[in-house]
């Protein structure tokens, strides 16, 4: 068997390897974190489109603040929630560049709600990648704007009660209503098939930038194993059972 394996492991038989747009830095994320998968997909899309030298990424505040250590492109690290404002100026001052923001639920749907809505409403020519895991990972598991009703977090330890804690926010449905968005979709990366669909969605969002018809918005419903206090496999099951009914997957807008 060992011989056969060595026979298979030849360059001509290679079908999947790490993207050249990913750096050699080991990601700081917890084991099984969805961030790593989405980072990889963006890297693969940039590599396949051949736009490494034409792309500027905008990093958020949150667990993915250090995304710039992992994708080998030019980056700007924004203040919490302000990535769409940075993206607006980059896109307008360098219309020849592919611009994308990468933001979590606290960044995009709480502190940066105004920047998100107005950038989408103006139809800024950029991609927005929205990681929604319903919790604040970096600060240690506090309630997010997208935390589900009844879901426990360190600032709603008995479960989110809409009467006192407010309701979970469907940001993606909101931006889909705005005339400035040209492609709005909600995806996930819990299975290989879902990963392939998410990659297609990200590719489409980047391709759309060539048309200069507005903002492309890709939400990825994600897990936070540490924040949810579950192992990665159970987190995926919990996400399917609890997150998907409230945050259903699929394209919401495609014009």
């Amino acid at each position: 068997m060992a011989e056969l394996l060595e026979d298979i492991k030849k360059p001509e038989n290679l079908v999947h390897k790490k993207s050249s747009v990913l750096t050699d830095n080991v990601m700081h994320y917890c084991p099984g974190c969805s961030h790593g998968v989405v980072h990889k997909l963006i890297a693969e899309v940039i590599e396949e489109m051949g736009i490494q030298d034409k792309t500027v990424g905008v990093a958020p505040v949150g667990c993915s603040v250090f995304i710039y250590n992992y994708l080998d492109i030019d980056w700007q690290e924004a203040a919490h929630g302000r990535a769409p404002a940075l993206g607006t100026a980059i896109s307008r001052l360098r219309p020849d560049r592919f611009v994308f923001t990468y933001q979590g639920d606290g960044d995009l749907a709480a502190i940066g709600t105004a920047e998100t809505i107005h950038a989408c409403n103006r139809g800024e020519n950029m991609v927005m990648i929205f990681i929604n895991n319903g919790i604040y990972g970096m600060t240690g598991g506090q309630m997010a704007p997208t935390t589900l009703e009844g879901m426990k977090a360190s600032t709603c330890p008995f479960g989110r009660d809409p009467k006192t804690d407010g309701n979970p926010l469907k940001m993606t449905e909101i931006v889909a209503q705005l005339p400035g968005t040209n492609f709005v979709t909600r995806q996930a990366v819990h299975t290989a098939a879902a990963v392939r669909r998410t990659k297609k969605a990200i590719r489409k969002a980047f391709e759309k930038q060539k048309e200069k018809t507005g903002t492309s918005f890709v939400e990825v419903v994600s897990t936070c194993n540490s924040g949810w206090k579950m192992n990665p496999v159970d987190s995926n099951k919990w996400m399917e059972e609890n997150m998907f009914p409230f945050y259903p997957l699929g394209d919401i807008k495609d014009v």
Binding site: M1, L5, D7, I8, K9, K10, N13, L14, V15, H16, K17, K18, S19, L22, V26, M27, Y29, P31, G32, C33, S34, H35, G36, V37, K40, V189, H190, T191, A192, V195, R196
Partner: peptide, 25 residues
């Protein structure tokens, strides 16, 4: 269980740390 591998790449797709390289013949 190497005999059973058909090189489908599903493992590499879901790997968050991009640490799996896949070959198929």
């Amino acid at each position: 269980n190497p005999e059973a591998c058909n090189g489908c790449t599903n493992c590499a797709q879901v790997c968050p740390d991009s640490c799996i390289t896949v070959y198929r013949k």
